[in-house]
Design a protein around this nucleic acid. Structure first.
Length: 838
RNA sequence: GCCGGAGUGGCGGAAUUGGCAGACGCGCACGACUCAAAAUCGUGUUCCCUACGGGAAUGAGGGUUCGAUUCCCUCCUUCGGCACCA
């Protein structure tokens, strides 16, 4: 790509030397764009760095939260660029989704039109930020050339046996009029992650991705540098538990009822079974005389929401079915109950109840007078004593009443680490009554959405041949433009008169298309791949680009996606790795999360609360550089903070004062600086450089700005002392502007140019710390006596421990405290302090 | 109930390996400039006292250490996640 020269526009010589961000920011943005400063192309002579920040939904307005996420990410990408990396820092839009469709229902404006208008506006707003986004690589998930490949990926998942259709009770948001994946239902009241409406259950035939196949691998985070909190959230979300699956037989029908238990060592204590009211065997096994009561209980349980059923402190209720099962370890006949504390959605929907060693089962047994048999005895406790218990016993002990295992030790470890469990696991396998088993809370990913504005699910249904994917050469399945906007709870695609009619790819007979669209998290699971080659049409990405840029080196974004996007994209990557489409085990090597900017009132920013901060207004008033600097300065990035509208004055002053320091032609003194002044200045410059470098590495953006402020204050003092014009001064200026460049790219470029340096500062190498220059000549050490600072001594930096010690002891103050006595102990922490114990 | 993060001046925050707590900034006060104001520049700004000097203080209490914001234990507050999970 040839570098275009900007037409040399003759500007009038500046009359006004004062800082005018509106002029210089526009000037440099135009120049950078004109000569494609931020175009990232493969360059095998350089190490690559793929910096990715989560892409926004095109709501139509860039708010301060976007700046908070993007500006530090941009600054760091710029820093990496100056460190010599070939940096890819792309941007795009997660452009499918409900808001645009809901707006269409409201006012009839087509989501396509609105979305692309919004993108237009936001792209312009983003450009005012002065970020180094490579817009040639922009990807928009709602564009056909993008969603063609989202559809293609669905087919690859289908071919890999990872996409399946199932009728089940799924979560439905009555406000969004669509189903949601388990991850998208939040909180105690089980509300929709997007709109906050409590969800309900609906029985629907839906497409799922078999994410659970990767549960174990998703628990491994080897080789990736991700925050512990995210790893913990994902681990808890998947919630692996080790145990056994054991088969109990029903008397009636001789059905095999599989149960999951984490405590196979307590099998001999299973004195009854509890089925979830929805369990498929309930109707058949229920005795005639119990039928009516059971039906009533089922109806009542179904009427309750899962929240009500899930309330842990709720009094347990249940009902005897009249049926019995056989405990396979001791052939005991045990009653089968139904109770709503057993959930169809976890495990198998049926449990063995061991009241002696499980609190819930104990409470249930007490209430309904069911037998309680203790099979784990704490050491030193007699059977009689145990019979007195009024709680379940869950601690360690010895197995009793357990046939061949009497006397076996049980500890509190889970799974095979527990000797009792390990022994029973082997035995049940031998006996053929059960096996070692792992259960997860993690569910398969429900991908179907009953909405229009999403990527079509590229599947066709034929009476003869059931479901088949759309042939790949017919992709994309395009969204029809002429649809009616009705909030019916069914996809508008279903109501379209002709769109769904097609032919079966197997037999060619008339068939119908799937009218649901995909969860937009499917689009964002692979956007980092589309950035590699957004115009490529032979595949989702150009393999040459993939081989050079992937994996993502640094990924930044909000932690709210811990169990959604960040889990989906890992699953997606692993599934596509196994399909031979991508390489490596993980898509993103390093992850860092930013916090959230809250409103002044400490509340989440929202239009309805009227606490939204508009960055455009700030940019108009102060310039993008000052806003960028404030964003990075005002809070710890990973923590976030409520917005303080006054605080921005601090960074505005800093930027102006730097401007003045560099452009004021009349230094305050003509007296040349002493060697000491220049040496001290140079020391401070290199110390600051070391600090700023380290802070960029560690994503500690706030202290980058404060260090730069500190150095500026020192430079003002040095200038006062005559340092201006010296070589040290020139070096200080040069390093200073380079350090500013990632944070405040426009003013840095302008000052760089005014220093007479060649365009562009953003292609300059990051300066190197002169370690020798950072060394202090003499250091002031505090002297502590019994832990309190009583004096300070100044010693040469290279003073030995003994020299420091005698200097400290020689101090008058120390002598006074010693009162002529010998100190008990003198500790010299070199370069830190002297501690004297009297 | 379980898991994880956080708690430091009026406010945002700093303190890198256990070594001077409060860097840097906001705000505030005073001063300079000005007819005046804004802007700008300068000085001060944790709290308490009898103020030359001394004492206390990093959510609370305890411990380890010459020395703890930092490590350990108990607890409190707060935010987030999970939860009749078998």
């Amino acid at each position: 790509m040839p570098v275009k020269e900007t037409p040399a526009k003759e500007e009038k010589p500046r009359q006004d030397k004062s800082y005018n961000p509106q002029i210089i920011e526009k000037k440099w943005q135009a120049k950078w764009e004109a000569n494609q400063l931020y175009r990232s192309v493969i360059d095998k002579s350089k190490p690559k760095h793929y910096a990715l920040t989560m892409l926004p939904y095109p709501s139509g307005d860039l708010h301060i939260g976007h700046w908070y996420a993007m500006t530090p990410a941009d600054a760091r990408a710029r820093y990496m660029h100056m460190r010599g990396y070939n940096v890819l820092f792309p941007m795009g839009f997660d452009a499918f989704g409900l808001p645009a469709e809901n707006a269409a229902i409201r006012d009839g404006v087509h989501p396509m039109k609105r979305t692309f208008q919004n993108i237009e506006k936001m792209r312009k707003q983003m450009k005012s930020m002065g970020a180094m986004f490579d817009w040639e690589r922009e990807a928009i998930s709602a564009a056909p050339e993008y969603y063609k490949w989202t559809e293609w990926f669905f087919i690859q998942l289908y071919k890999a046996g990872l996409a399946y259709r199932k009728m089940s009770a799924v979560d439905w948001c009555p406000n969004c009029n669509t189903t949601l994946a388990r991850e998208q239902v939040w909180g105690d009241d089980r509300h929709c992650e997007r709109c906050g409406t409590p969800v309900i259950k609906k029985d629907l035939d839906q497409w799922f991705f078999k994410a659970t196949k990767y549960a174990d691998e998703l628990l491994k985070f080897d080789g990736i540098d991700w925050p512990q909190t995210v790893k913990t959230l994902q681990t808890n979300w998947i919630d692996r538990s080790e145990g056994a699956s054991v088969v109990f037989k029903t008397e009636i029908g001789n059905h095999n009822v599989e149960i999951f238990t984490t405590r196979p060592d307590t099998l001999w204590g299973a004195t009854f079974m509890v089925f979830s009211p929805e369990h498929p065997f309930v109707d058949e096994i229920t005795a005639t005389e119990n039928k009516q009561a059971v039906e009533e209980y089922k109806t009542q349980a179904a009427r309750q929401t899962e929240i009500q059923r899930g309330a842990a402190d709720k009094e347990k209720t249940g009902l005897f079915t009249g049926a019995y099962a056989i405990n396979p370890v001791n052939q005991e006949r045990i009653p089968i109950w139904i109770a709503d504390y057993v959930m169809m959605s976890y495990g198998t929907g049926a449990i063995m109840a061991v009241p002696a060693h499980d609190e819930r089962d104990f409470a249930f047994a007490k209430k309904y007078k069911l037998p309680i048999v203790f099979v784990i005895q704490p050491e030193g406790e007699s059977e009689a004593e145990q019979g007195e218990r009024n709680t379940a016993y869950t601690g360690p002990g010895i197995m009793v009443n357990s046939g061949p295992f009497n006397g076996t030790k049980v500890n509190t470890e889970k799974g095979r680490k527990n000797p009792g469990i390990a022994a029973v696991l082997d035995w049940i396998a031998e006996q053929g009554i059960g096996k070692e088993s792992v259960n997860y809370r993690y569910r398969d990913w429900l991908i179907s959405r009953q909405r229009y504005w999403g990527a079509p699910i590229p599947m066709i249904y034929c009476e003869q041949h059931s479901w088949n994917p759309v042939p790949e050469d017919q992709l994309p399945v395009l969204l029809p433009e002429d649809v009616e906007w009705k909030p019916t709870g069914e996809s508008p695609l279903k109501l379209h008169p002709t769109w769904k009619n097609t032919t079966c790819p197997v037999c060619g007979e008339p068939a119908t298309r799937e009218t649901d669209t995909m969860d937009t998290f499917m689009c964002s699971s692979w956007y980092h791949l589309r950035y590699l080659s957004p115009k490529y049409d032979k595949g989702p990405f150009d393999p040459a680009e993939y081989d050079y840029w992937m994996p993502v080196d640094t990924y930044t974004g909000g932690i709210e996606h811990a169990t959604m996007h960040l889990l989906y994209t890992r699953f997606f990557h692993k599934a596509m790795r196994d399909a031979g489409i991508v390489k490596g085990d993980e898509p993103m090597m390093q992850l860092r999360n930013q916090g959230m900017v809250l409103g002044e009132d400490n509340d989440k920013m929202s239009k309805s609360k009227g606490n939204v901060v508009a960055p455009d207004v700030l940019v108009d008033k102060y310039g993008a550089d000052s806003v960028r600097a404030y964003i990075m300065f005002f809070a710890r990035w990973e923590m976030g903070a409520p917005w303080d509208p006054q605080g921005i004055e601090g960074t505005v002053r800093w930027v102006r004062r730097v401007w003045t320091l560099f452009t004021d032609p009349t230094p305050p003194t003509t007296v040349p600086a002493s060697d000491e002044v220049t040496k001290n200045l140079r020391r401070k410059v290199h110390q600051t450089l070391r600090k700023v470098t380290r802070d960029f590495e560690n994503f500690e953006f706030n202290t980058i700005i404060s260090s730069l402020m500190e150095l500026m204050n020192e430079m003002y003092k040095a200038r006062e002392a005559g340092a201006a014009g010296s070589n040290t001064w020139k070096e200080a200026q040069e390093i200073y502007v380079k350090m500013m460049a990632p944070v405040t790219p426009h003013i840095a470029e302008e000052l760089w140019s005014q220093l007479g340096k060649p365009y562009s500062i953003h292609t300059q190498p990051w300066p190197t710390v002169d370690e020798a220059a950072t060394k202090e000549d003499s250091i002031e050490l505090p002297v502590q006596i019994n832990g309190k600072v009583r004096d300070r001594i100044t010693v040469p930096a290279e003073a030995t421990e003994d020299e420091i010690k005698s200097a400290a002891l020689a101090s008058e103050v120390v002598q006074k405290y010693l009162e002529g006595k010998e100190p008990r102990k003198v500790i010299v922490a070199k370069g830190r302090l002297v501690s004297i114990v009297v």
